[in-house]
Amino acid sequence: MTTSIPPEVDLGALPALPRDDAGPVFSAPWEAQAFAMTLSLHARGVFTWREWADVLAAELAAASARGEPDDGTHYYVHWLAALEKLVAGKKLILGNELERRVDEWDAAARSTPHGKPIELPRRG
């Protein structure tokens, strides 16, 4: 498609572009984790890539509607939220299972001395 600028657009009001010169692919390990979980679940056929793109697009649109500045640095926050929604929608994780697990990891992290790997207590 070819685009031209509609006359009513005030170009001066457009936000500036963030820049990076071949910056890091992931800015924290959890971003890579969220990314890889998504690819992995897709590879198992849990959802189609179209389904994923739709959920992610909705998540990004909602963030933008809330007026959050979106300079790309929060991208994986929205990615992870989208993955949580898709996984819940597919009933792979039920009810408050995820919230309970978050609390367990939170408790484990707080009780782990500095420098030791954080692990969940064994159950049963």
């Binding site: 979980m37 994780i93 990891w105």
Partner: peptide, 23 residues
């Protein structure tokens, strides 16, 4: 300590691994 999205990603991964959905 583990917090924010890092905490949620860890929790989600541990559940998916436990359910055999991701390796």
């Amino acid at each position: 300590p583990l917090s924010g999205p890092a905490l949620r990603a860890r929790a989600l991964e541990s559940l998916l691994v436990e359910k055999g959905l991701v390796d």
